[in-house]
């Protein structure tokens, strides 16, 4: 129980600290913080399925991209305010998750990962050729109607905090038990009364909804979206990296991973020719020496130093 309060306290503290960022009037700080928030929101969304439910979706970029396009359609064709367009983005992505669930949930393990990846790629190619929504040229948002960079930052921060809070609420709940049970052993979960399809669908839809919100908010800020980059698998790879680096199946992990990746990409931006090599090398080192990610490593560190045999074993990283 105490730990729960500590968790919520920490979230409130971090959120409050992040709220002060625009006050520094440092555009670079705001820029880094914005992408940090974006990555945290997306990583938490993916962590809910990939980390807690064992549904390793490699098609997350599709939900992000659908949110972006739904927002573009809402703004351009229906002239809705930005806030409404973001909500529309989330809802469209969630609806898409329902639509593909009947197909993708038939696949297990690696086949689910490949299936979602293929569907996302198919959607990307479809969007490239769908002239109504701009085809390869993409769609624009009216630039003059856009909000200030600070406002976009607040929106993204709200999404990041909201996504984190959602995971914090779900994990210890009844649903959270079903997700984790299903992740660890699908058949055992069913033997204990868990309805697999319904549980998977719930997690998938919540996750897609968050990704859609983030995509829609980001698209409004981008001002111009086109299918190649907005549906790019690099979004998926990026957030999976963040979750793995930070610590999969933990709440703090995606935040730690996002901070790590943000710092890395900012510091390495100056070493253009080397940055891919260095990034790859760091990733390999982390996976090799910290298989539970940075946060998992930190959690295990005290017991590891103490040298107890149990120290190497994981104990409920979900709790933190």
């Amino acid at each position: 129980m105490n730990r729960t309060y500590v968790g919520w306290g920490a979230l409130a503290l971090v959120a409050a600290a992040m709220l002060t960022v625009p006050a520094f009037n440092d555009r670079y700080m705001l820029f880094v913080a914005y992408f940090l928030a974006l990555n945290v929101a997306l990583a938490q969304s993916w962590n809910l399925v990939g980390g807690y439910s064992g549904l390793v979706s490699l098609g997350h970029a599709a939900f992000f991209g659908l949110g972006a396009y739904a927002a573009a359609v809402a703004v351009n064709f229906l002239s809705v305010p930005i806030a409404v367009s973001i909500l529309v983005g989330g809802l469209v992505a969630a609806a898409a998750a329902v639509a593909v669930s009947f197909l993708t949930f038939r696949f297990l393990g690696i086949y689910f990962a490949i299936g979602t990846l293929v569907l996302a790629e198919a959607l990307r190619l479809w969007m490239v050729n769908w002239e109504l929504l701009g085809g390869a040229q993409g769609m624009q948002f009216p630039i003059h109607a856009s909000l200030s960079v600070s406002t976009f930052y607040y929106i993204m921060l709200a999404l990041a905090v909201g996504a984190t809070a959602a995971v914090m609420l779900i994990v210890p709940s009844r649903l959270g038990f079903a997700l984790r049970a299903m992740r660890d052993n699908e058949e055992s979960a069913q033997n204990l009364g868990v309805n697999l399809f319904r549980t998977k669908l719930t997690a998938f839809v919540i996750s897609a909804f968050i990704a859609g919100l983030v995509g829609a908010a980001h698209a409004n800020r981008l001002g111009h979206i086109e299918p190649y980059s907005i549906f790019s698998a690099s979004w998926t790879i990026g957030i999976v990296n963040i979750v793995i680096i930070g610590g999969i199946g933990t709440i703090v992990g995606p935040v730690v991973g996002a901070v790590f990746v943000a710092l890395m990409s900012e510091y390495l931006a100056d070493y253009a020719s080397l940055h891919l090599v260095i990034e790859g090398l760091l990733l390999i080192l982390i996976i090799r020496f910290m298989p539970y990610g940075i946060w998992g490593f930190v959690q295990r560190l005290p017991r590891w130093i103490a040298g107890t045999s149990a120290g190497r074993r994981a104990t409920d990283p979900e709790k933190v």
Binding site: E226, S229, A272
Partner: peptide
């Protein structure tokens, strides 16, 4: 800065 041939 290197954009890796990627618009985003």
């Amino acid at each position: 800065y290197d954009d890796q041939s990627r618009p985003e």
